[in-house]
Design a protein around this nucleic acid. Structure first.
Lengths: 331, 331
DNA sequence: CTGAAAGCGCTTACAG
DNA sequence: CTGAAAGCGCTTACAG
């Protein structure tokens, strides 16, 4: 039972070859077929796998770091599942670090990954600060920012502005007049600024120029609080929520207050969570293609590692999902 | 810009001390206060952090591996968020590996973590096979199984049997007669067998001995399919779903078929997802304490590493969440 | 095509 | 309390 962990040297001995040869075997170097077979045999017998972190001298570690702001989000889950799949199929190891909505922790995590010699980092951040930029610039490895724009480098993003505009227009077009918007803090440029601006511009096209604007965190509770405040400030006929989760909060409060959706108040969100179609009425929302975002992010970082050209900015599509939470011809 | 990455040797030079001293500085060894200050100064100036994976010779790596069956689950997200927090606060690095519902991949992941010299592994598995047991037994490091029972070792689990029984009784007690159960495959012992058995036993206490039983995967679609089949087989007055997500599928089909919940059919789930309270009617469900599960798992693995005694089996509580999806006094 | 040797960035007895 | 030396499990020129 005290079976010591096997090392490459053990494998080499057992196979009767040098350990450099075993190393070459694993890294696609030149090895004669007959030698290969010998090595393969002992590997299979002992179920040996090289220690991925002992490759101190290797130029490439074959590990990609992924930084996420939370593990508790549908969207994040989709993005990392997609990244992880893509990388795994190409023999890369994915290292996921959660920064739990804490910017300092995020910065530390990035630094740690760099020190761990990962080949590249995918950063899904809630905000890109000056510190981020500094670290990114000093890093000697490819970095791809996902779901947020990074002007000084490579990023994959949702089309937040256009999506917002689409939604703003939709609410305008369907005849709403007194509109409220529940957004998030502006440190999150993608959602807090661009998406909001899109919504405002879309609404403005229909003459709605002074919507009530709230700022919330990303939580269910936050959506409830904001909705309550909106109602206290007076009547509205539509609430546009920056995320589906916020919309869930709005539903909860509207139901509690005895207001009907959409007869009394229309509600829309952004996200296209699976659960959104289960609400009564089904939530009208915009779905971003998170799987595509993950795929593109992973593809891009590998291209960068191989020093192939990549686009500076790649924009992912969205899809309008029509539910029954918006009142039509609301004249 | 070609700033080479700093090494411990560089720090030692800059601080005018030996590198063993720097190493001791980081690992809590004996260093005179004045020496400490010198080292600290250069560390701060250069923002140095040791490469966690170069600790080839260290007895402990201070990294804990976490294996999850999917990243796309509310429950899993809660569990790993909780584990990650606990470990991070104690200066451990969490390494998350997703096995994407693929048993072979899961086995490989476990093997990889072992080879990476992690100090311990938390395994949240959909099933514990003989191969798992073999690997676990041969591993020289602590392993804690989470959300699944592991008779040959340490595990943290939901009280699936009692939870199932509670639900079975509840449905019996509220007067239902023709009951269907949508479960999952029996490879998942916790949910597929224990939870189901609990439900059946609970129902039996009320004389319901021949419920219609379905087996599904964990998906929304799976819930829909099973519900459709149930309806084809005849009338039922209650559907018990092994997870909330399956219940979402049931809702969808029942709504489509024009059947009212709970007037025509009662529906209950297990999970207590945030979204479940947003359904109309609110879903009656059982919530397991996933944060506690993660916390206990992390705490237990650290105890094992420190060779402190731990319980073989720790059972996490559940909470009944009463919605409006069950018809009362259905006589 | 292959192996001995040096080295990656750390840690750990050990001697001082 | 501290530093030189050996070693962790690999990879990489290099010579053969």
């Amino acid at each position: 039972m005290e079976k010591k962990k096997m090392t490459m040297a053990d494998v080499a001995d057992l196979a009767g070859v040098g350990k450099s040869t075993v190393s070459r075997y694993f890294n696609g170097g030149y090895v004669k077929q007959s030698t290969k077979s010998k090595i393969q045999k002992v590997i299979e017998e002992y179920n040996y796998e090289p220690n991925a972190f002992a490759r101190l001298k290797a130029k490439q570690s074959n590990v990609i770091g992924v930084i996420v702001p939370t593990l508790n989000s549908k969207i994040t889950s989709r993005v990392i599942t997609s990244i992880d799949r893509y990388l795994r199929e190409r023999e890369y190891t994915t290292l996921i670090k959660n920064s739990d909505h804490d910017i300092d922790l995020e910065l530390q995590n990035i630094q740690k990954l760099i020190n761990m010699n990962v080949d590249g980092i995918l950063v899904s951040s809630i905000a890109i600060t000056k510190e981020h930029k500094k670290i990114f610039q000093e890093a000697q490895i490819p970095i791809v920012v996902v779901a947020q724009e990074y002007e000084d480098g490579i990023s994959i993003l949702d089309d937040d502005y256009q999506a917002g505009k689409y939604m703003g227009r939709y609410i305008g077009e369907t005849g709403h007049k007194k509109v409220a918007y529940i957004g998030v803090y502006e440190t999150d440029v993608a959602v807090g600024i661009r998406r909001k601006q899109g919504v405002l511009d879309g609404l403005a096209e229909y003459g709605i120029t002074d919507p009530v604007i709230m700022k919330s965190d990303y939580s269910f509770i936050g959506g409830q609080k904001s909705t309550r405040e909106i109602l206290e400030q007076g009547e509205v006929d539509a609430i546009i929520c920056a995320t589906d989760r916020l919309a869930f909060g709005a539903y909860r409060i509207l139901h509690k207050e005895g207001l009907r959706i959409p007869e009394d108040v229309s509600v829309v969100g952004f996200g296209g969570y699976e659960e959104s179609s289960l609400l009564t009425p089904e939530l009208t929302t915009l779905k971003f293609d998170s799987y595509a975002m993950g795929y593109l992010g992973a593809e891009t970082i590998l291209k960068m590692i191989q020093e192939k050209p990549v686009s500076k900015k790649q924009i992912v599509e969205f899809e309008f999902i029509k539910g029954n939470s918006v009142k039509k011809e609301n004249f």
